[in-house]
Amino acid sequence: MIHNRVRIVDVADALGLSTATVSKVIHGNTEKISDETVKRVQQELERTGYIPNMAGILLARNNSRIIGVVVNDHVKYEGGV
């Protein structure tokens, strides 16, 4: 597991902004945010190498469209004759 991962809270702290503001910029909800702030956040995201956590995004969306399949190929459970 990577422990030096850049988080939204790290970006927000570096810029003196709220995590909500940084999150809105990341997700493109910038109607109520000044162009200057959007630019600052985007520059900080690039500078720090921020990578969104896909598991967190899918969890928040509550719709991952991922199907899991479990296959048991153990000899004991095969339906042989």
Rank of each mutant, 00 (worst) to 15 (best):
69 V>Q: 09
25 V>R: 06
34 S>H: 02
54 M>E: 15
19 T>L: 01
29 N>P: 04
73 D>W: 08
27 H>W: 02
46 E>D: 06
52 P>E: 11
55 A>N: 07
74 H>S: 15
69 V>G: 07
53 N>Y: 01
33 I>K: 00
35 D>N: 08
55 A>Y: 05
16 G>Q: 13
34 S>M: 01
5 R>E: 08
15 L>D: 10
13 D>R: 15
52 P>C: 02
44 E>R: 11
29 N>C: 05
7 R>D: 03
58 L>I: 02
49 G>V: 14
58 L>W: 00
35 D>L: 10
72 N>Q: 09
47 R>V: 09
51 I>R: 14
22 V>M: 02
12 A>P: 12
8 I>E: 00
69 V>W: 03
17 L>F: 08
58 L>S: 00
31 E>K: 10
20 A>P: 09
11 V>M: 00
12 A>L: 13
76 K>W: 06
74 H>W: 12
32 K>E: 07
27 H>C: 04
1 M>N: 04
12 A>K: 14
63 N>Y: 04
39 K>C: 03
35 D>K: 11
12 A>G: 10
9 V>R: 15
68 G>V: 08
15 L>I: 09
63 N>G: 08
33 I>M: 02
22 V>A: 01
16 G>K: 11
7 R>G: 03
57 I>N: 10
53 N>F: 01
17 L>Q: 11
16 G>F: 06
59 L>M: 10
9 V>K: 15
44 E>G: 03
61 R>N: 13
72 N>G: 07
10 D>Q: 07
29 N>H: 14
15 L>A: 06
4 N>M: 14
5 R>W: 09
79 G>I: 09
26 I>D: 03
53 N>T: 04
29 N>A: 12
74 H>M: 12
69 V>S: 09
51 I>D: 05
56 G>F: 00
20 A>R: 15
52 P>A: 05
28 G>K: 06
77 Y>D: 10
3 H>W: 05
9 V>T: 14
52 P>D: 06
72 N>D: 11
49 G>S: 09
49 G>E: 07
54 M>F: 10
28 G>M: 10
48 T>V: 11
53 N>G: 00
78 E>D: 03
44 E>H: 02
13 D>I: 14
77 Y>F: 10
66 I>L: 04
16 G>H: 12
64 S>K: 02
73 D>K: 09
51 I>M: 10
34 S>P: 03
54 M>R: 14
42 Q>C: 07
71 V>R: 07
40 R>K: 15
46 E>H: 08
32 K>V: 05
7 R>M: 12
81 V>L: 05
14 A>M: 11
67 I>A: 13
81 V>D: 05
23 S>R: 11
26 I>E: 03
35 D>T: 10
35 D>W: 04
31 E>I: 07
23 S>A: 12
28 G>R: 06
58 L>C: 02
13 D>H: 14
15 L>F: 05
48 T>K: 15
26 I>N: 01
15 L>Y: 05
9 V>Q: 14
15 L>K: 08
51 I>A: 06
22 V>W: 00
40 R>N: 13
50 Y>A: 04
30 T>K: 02
80 G>S: 06
34 S>T: 07
7 R>K: 15
30 T>E: 03
65 R>T: 08
75 V>Y: 01
20 A>N: 14
66 I>Y: 03
36 E>W: 00
39 K>I: 03
78 E>M: 07
77 Y>S: 07
54 M>V: 14
32 K>Y: 08
